[in-house]
């Protein structure tokens, strides 16, 4: 360890930050998109229309039985093929993440919606709220609250999973560190830095979750 070079870490900070920018951007949009699509899928799964519920269930089961890395590959080659023009690695990967995560968010939100008592749904209906209003103002806010710790845990997993984008050549945090490591032959320094950064960020996320769990204990 005597030749452990801290300078290389400090010197490469701007480069690493660029990579972290991509990681965070991807994580953020994948969460927003995945959650939005996941909520829609959850509502479809719980719909009284059998065909709609079946279609959503098929979607979820399909994506949950595929390795994420395969989905990323697929969309990387598939999206430009479908659109007939290149869309760039970032967008094809983002679409892959959104569609993949939506399957998991769907199941979380389905459990959340089902955890809201029927009486609450009745109360909203009895006041004259439409299905959409009842979902928007009564059911989904309570479902989100009940599922918040699990949603955030899923977000942390997603944050870590974004490192898989190296397979299509996107330069995220891990890839940026890897480039420096190989260029300057500083594998130890860079991989330790990567591990430490992931550890600190995920730990902070986990602490937030624990705090939330105390504030909103499950069950009312």
């Amino acid at each position: 360890m005597s030749d452990f070079d801290f300078n290389i870490i400090i010197e490469s900070i701007p480069f690493l930050l660029e990579g972290m920018g991509l990681t965070l951007l991807l994580t953020f949009f994948a969460i927003v998109g995945g959650l939005a699509l996941g909520v829609v899928l959850a509502l479809c799964r719980l719909s009284p229309y059998g065909w709609l519920s079946f279609a959503a269930a098929t979607y979820v089961n399909f994506f949950r039985s595929m390795p994420l890395i395969l989905i990323i590959f697929w969309f990387y080659f598939l999206v430009p093929f479908i659109l007939g023009r290149p869309v760039g690695g970032f967008y094809s990967v983002l679409i892959a993440f959104v569609m993949f995560e939506a399957a998991y968010y769907c199941e979380i939100m389905r459990a959340g919606i089902q955890s809201v008592r029927t009486g609450q749904v009745y109360a909203g209906q009895a006041l004259g709220l439409t299905y959409k209003q009842n979902m928007q103002f009564v059911v989904l806010p309570q479902a989100f609250r009940a599922m918040m710790p699990i949603l955030l845990t899923q977000a942390i997993i997603l944050f870590q999973d974004t490192s898989l984008v190296y397979v299509v050549g996107l330069r995220d945090f891990l890839v940026a560190a890897d480039i420096v490591a190989n260029r300057d032959n500083r594998l130890m320094e860079m991989y330790l830095t990567v591990a430490l950064v992931y550890f600190v960020l995920c730990l902070m996320g986990q602490l937030c979750i624990n705090k939330l769990q105390k504030k909103y204990p499950s069950g009312r």
């Binding site: 008592r117 009486g119 609450q120 009745y122 109360a123 909203g124 009895a126 103002f137 806010p141 309570q142």
Partner: peptide, 11 residues
């Protein structure tokens, strides 16, 4: 309508 378990919106 008034329900047995009140059903006020808790949030």
């Amino acid at each position: 309508m008034v329900f047995q378990n009140f059903e006020l919106f808790p949030h």
